[in-house]
């Protein structure tokens, strides 16, 4: 088991300070923008130069690094700093490859979040950035599992970050990722149209191999590339039978359902093989869709396990939820990259 001892999340919901998940923050222009904190503790001069992803990553990661020395920083990000990337690209075109300021270029590399965290905490140990799109965070979790097994007793900062930028929103819109129509938040799961809403956020975790005092533990991660719902269901079934012990009960199925009618079949297929009395909760109406949204889901799972309850708006059908000890997460990104995670108290 990899144990999570601290968890911080900057997201479109009130997840960072004065956490309140009951009050649902609504999308603006089909985008769920993160509620950014005041970023106390980051010097204003440094903060000004940071792109959005780096800022959120530093904002969610520094509270951990400030008090807990770590033996490495492991980040998953689908795209890193796309806004800086296109800002620099636009300069190249507008100034016809003239003399350009390198700031945006340096901030645009995907490893800028992990690098910034390393620099601010003067951490010279392991530092890695996984960018495999919808498996970026899952590979970061896998990396953390492997680091902890190689170095028992050590601890790591593990995180997932992605940002909304106008540029990336344009590209993803052309790629068909977002809904054409404006929908009310209450219609998020019922619109029956293609696409979803854009989301963003940063979730950061302090992980080690020590159980005492942990918020939760990750006991397994599964990954699969497939466009076939039957293959996904088979893998899901196998994941459950491999990792759920005989008398262990799944208390909650956390589904990455995104309101996109093209990927609903995968979620429905996985749900269909679970016993009917397992409550189903969803989170994408809170986080929106982005490559590392599973890091938001992990933060939420920790929160649920810690407090023993969850907001009613997350439940797919209104049921009494009791004894929350084991949460099974299934997520997919763009109907190709699927992941499972088993999270336990």
């Amino acid at each position: 088991m990899v144990y999570i001892h601290q968890a911080y999340c900057i997201s479109p919901q009130k997840t960072f300070q004065d956490v309140d998940l009951e009050l649902l923050h609504e999308p603006v222009d089909k985008k769920l923008y993160a509620i950014e904190p005041s970023y106390e503790g980051i010097p204003p001069g440094v903060l000004r130069r940071m792109g959005r992803a780096v800022r959120m990553g530093a904002g969610a990661g520094m509270p951990i690094l400030k008090n807990s020395p770590v033996d490495g920083i492991i980040i998953g990000t689908g795209k890193g700093g796309m806004e800086d990337c296109i800002k620099f690209l636009n300069q190249i075109v507008q100034y016809e490859e003239g003399l350009l300021a390198p700031g945006n270029f340096v901030q645009s590399t995907s490893n800028a979040v992990a690098a910034q965290l390393g620099m601010m905490s003067r951490n010279k140990s392991y530092n890695s950035t996984h960018v495999h799109r919808g498996h970026a965070f899952e590979n970061a979790v896998t990396d953390a599992i492997m680091q902890l097994r190689a170095l028992p007793g050590k601890q790591f900062l593990l995180g997932g970050v992605d940002e909304i930028s106008d540029f990336d929103y344009n590209i993803e819109t052309l790629d068909g990722s977002y809904k054409k129509e404006v929908i009310a938040a209450s219609d998020f799961y019922t619109s029956d149209t293609p696409g979803s809403l854009a989301g963003e956020g940063a979730a950061m975790f302090l992980v080690n191999d020590q159980q005492p005092g942990a918020l939760a533990g990750i006991s397994a991660v599964g990954m699969l590339h497939s466009e076939d719902p039957a293959a996904v269901t088979a893998a899901f079934q196998q994941f459950i039978s491999t990792h759920i012990r005989g008398n262990q009960k799944i208390d909650l199925f956390l589904s990455g359902e995104s309101g996109d009618n093209r990927t609903l079949k995968f979620y429905a297929a996985c749900e269909s093989i679970l016993p009917a009395d397992i409550p189903v909760a969803r989170f994408k109406h809170m986080s929106g869709v982005y490559a590392t949204a599973s890091s938001f889901a992990l933060w939420m799972a920790c929160h649920i396990l810690q407090h023993g309850r969850l907001p009613v708006h997350t439940l797919k059908t209104v049921v009494e939820v009791s004894s929350l000890k084991t949460i099974l997460l299934y997520n997919n990104y763009k109907g190709l990259q699927h992941s499972f995670m088993l999270i336990q108290k």
């Binding site: 992990a114 950035t129 996984h130 498996h135 590979n139 896998t142």
Partner: peptide
């Protein structure tokens, strides 16, 4: 994105194991 390369290779060969892309500059 950087992942596009390995997603292309994964599909091209029909690979089924863990696939990852790393970007540390």
């Amino acid at each position: 994105d950087c992942a596009s390369v390995n997603i292309f290779l994964q599909k091209h060969f029909g690979m089924n194991g863990i696939i990852n892309t790393i970007n540390t500059a």
